[in-house]
Design a protein around this nucleic acid. Structure first.
Length: 273
DNA sequence: AGGCAGGTTCTTA
DNA sequence: TAAGAACCTGCC
């Protein structure tokens, strides 16, 4: 099916923004896998996109996944060039990035895996984990099997050998524990969705292998609380070099997380040169 | 070969 | 409570 999108929307920038690990350029479009769904999407006109899903699946899932209900152009417009020229340039550079509405469970495991790994290594580990469970949900544009992201139950029950084959290193015990916590019901990611920001943070920090940075990634990308501002090495460099007097978090609330994405993307590609 | 990559835990003072 | 070391693995 075809759709039209007039707001900020750039598939390449989203794929490279570091918020998603199963969103890859392939041929003339992008293969996107989320939980137990797979999509091939490509740009087919100035504002037109072609998706290999039904209108029903688009309306019920992918439209929300791409966060098409939020006006990113308007939020970007709140940046004052005169007040913060660096952020303005970062936002111009990153125009088209959106914060996807991804699954809390998938994000939790993905960002636990991310610690002290580079992005290709994170992607490789996640694909190995999905392949280790091997619940096939479809095929990609070249006919290769696509596997679902494992459920908590599937990960909790995965053999030690298979888990060890995913190049998780010391993170394997974090992943296993998170799976056991959620599968047993000791932790309810759904209930956390209704918790206050503070309660959510406290709950996440109680998980084995989850510190402040991973927790903030989970809050921003898994729970779509757009004011969360994860500080990784890149953002810390930006804050240190470009904001010696502090970043104006008050001005951009409740959308500091979107600003974080612009700063992150810019710093990794061009902005710190 | 040694250092480092989207950090967190464990140990020590 | 706060630094500093240790941690798996892959890649340069």
């Amino acid at each position: 099916m075809k759709i039209e999108i007039f707001d900020d929307f750039d598939l390449k920038k989203i794929a490279d923004s570091g918020q998603c690990f199963r969103f890859n350029e392939h041929g003339d479009g992008y293969e996107v896998t989320a939980s137990s769904r797979h999509l091939f999407i490509k740009k087919s006109g100035e504002f037109e996109y072609e998706l290999d899903c039904s209108p029903d699946e688009y309306e019920n899932f992918w439209k929300n996944y791409f966060d098409l209900g939020l006006d990113y152009r308007e939020i970007r417009g709140r940046i004052d060039k005169d007040e913060d020229d660096y952020l303005y340039r970062a936002a111009e550079f990153g125009k088209g990035i959106r914060i996807l509405r991804q699954d809390p469970w998938e994000m939790l495991i993905s960002f636990i895996i991310s610690q002290r790994k580079n992005i290709p290594a994170i992607k490789a580990s996640i694909e190995k984990l999905c392949a280790a469970v091997s619940r096939k949900i479809g095929t990609d544009s070249e006919g290769r099997a696509v596997y679902a992201f494992p459920t908590p139950e599937e990960l909790a029950g995965l053999s030690d050998e298979k888990l060890a084959s995913c190049s998780l290193g010391y993170r394997d015990k974090y992943v296993r524990q998170a799976a056991l916590d959620v599968a047993s019901g000791a932790v309810s990611l759904d209930k956390w969705g209704d918790a206050s920001d503070e309660e959510l943070m406290t709950g996440l920090l109680g998980l084995f292998g989850v510190g402040v940075k991973v927790a903030n990634c989970e809050i921003l990308f898994g729970y779509h609380r757009l004011d969360a501002f994860p500080k990784d090495v890149w953002i810390n460099r930006v804050l240190e070099l470009k904001y010696p007097n502090g970043f104006n978090f008050d001005k951009y609330a409740p959308y500091n997380g979107i600003m974080q994405q612009y700063l992150f993307y810019y710093s990794r590609n061009d902005g710190l040169i």
